[in-house]
Design a protein around this nucleic acid. Structure first.
Lengths: 230, 230
DNA sequence: TCAAAAGTGTTGCCGATACACCCATGT
DNA sequence: ACATGGGTGTATCGGCAACACTTTTGA
């Protein structure tokens, strides 16, 4: 908190970006993330998380967004701080503390993503051999995603405004890596009160048209609980 | 991650220290924390979290420990990263990013704490008017403590090696601020498998001598679950 | 008419709560 | 003896997993 000038220490902000895409072989939805190829030492040529130095006039989250816009063209809505990594030896020849964010992008945002020359997407569970300690960071972010989806309605962040409960269930299944019972899933989600029906239905399927829902974070479960107990 | 030199930006590490002490009026156990009086601008004279600039050759957690040892004489065992605070305007006249840790100290550690001239302890729920954004940080740390104690066996970190279940329950009650049913609490804790009986009993009480337990993080619940399902 | 997924109903199990009750010690 | 907290037993309630069953569409 004091004004000591720090010479060799630099502060970077990086982001773990998660999107859902079909797996190349199985076709099943899985978690993917974009990586950036390093074009200088250290770790020249290796893949790394998108990131960059923190600017003087930027908040931490703003820095993460700026880097994402520059490297991948993404402007995601959900963005959350993950952890600060600052081991002395994590970057050869320099002291770099990285404050890492993680983010979820929707299919429409994902579609707008313009992969630059040195940007490529990978299945999140397969990534390894990244620059710096980024293997550990990706692992940590994946754990957080899988933990948080079980107690927080973040799955909506993977979907567009209107969605069916089957689509929402696909998100959970992709993230958790296992099938869920459609009947029980429906009841769980509706009991939370985090979605509300739009009244519209999805047509064109070869079966009964599913109802469309929107996420309802303006009237979360807590409010309902207060009303119920009152 | 690049080597750009950063001039005006400095990185500090601060820590929210939690200990349990009896409340002055009610006598009931509550959460306390030590604060340090600032002796320079900005916020000269106000109370602030213990902290200091990050040294080049120190890991983040090591920096937190060093500051604690210097200001309060504490060497706590439980130490966890809380959050990185880096809003542009959080420190007048300078850009400071603070990586904040939180820690729990045991009564014996607490007893060793030598309060310096400018160090004073306060009930955690009462603190306000701190320097910088430290009010927000303390609030955030308290929320984390109260959330985490419900799903993680961190309460042990408030106790010495041997303790009774009643003492452990007092910790929960102090943190959560409400009474717990002794019978059900006992079953919950034992079902977790995070404590094991030492075989010894606490004597000198005016009632039946309670059994003493130690924390058992070497054989956590997960191991038992695997054995059960095998 | 059939396949396929949407959506509803029902049952059984498990964990948590509430609370009655017995146990062992100091005074 | 009795007060006090330690410790055990048990009934009840609610949530969740499993799964049978009905509904509605396109082909």
């Amino acid at each position: 908190m004091t004004d000591t000038t720090q010479q060799r220490l630099s502060l970077a902000v990086s982001t773990v970006v998660f999107a859902l895409r079909p797996h190349l072989r199985t076709g099943r939805l899985t978690v993917w993330l974009p990586l950036v190829r390093r074009i200088r030492e250290p770790y020249d040529g290796l893949w790394a998380l998108p990131g960059g130095p923190l600017e003087d006039d930027q908040d931490l989250a703003a820095s993460a967004r700026a880097t994402l816009a520059r490297t991948t063209g993404l402007a995601p809505r959900y963005l959350e701080q993950l952890y600060a990594f600052g081991d002395v030896d994590r970057s050869p020849g320099a002291r770099v503390v990285s404050i890492v964010y993680w983010t979820l992008v929707r299919p429409d945002e994902d579609a707008q993503a313009i992969d630059g020359e040195n940007v490529e997407w990978f299945p999140a569970d397969d990534v390894c051999g990244l620059a710096f300690d980024h293997d550990v960071i990706v692992r940590y972010a994946l754990d957080r995603l899988r933990a948080k989806i079980t107690y927080s309605p973040i799955a909506h962040a993977f979907l567009t405004d209107e969605f069916t409960l089957a689509q929402l269930r696909e998100v959970y299944e992709a993230v958790l890596g296992r099938r869920l019972d459609p009947a029980n899933f429906r009841r769980q989600i509706l009991a939370q009160g985090t979605v509300e029906p739009t009244g519209r239905h999805l047509t064109g399927t070869s079966h009964r048209p599913p109802a469309l829902y929107r996420s309802n974070l303006a009237r979360p479960r807590a409010t309902l609980t207060i009303e119920e107990t009152a």
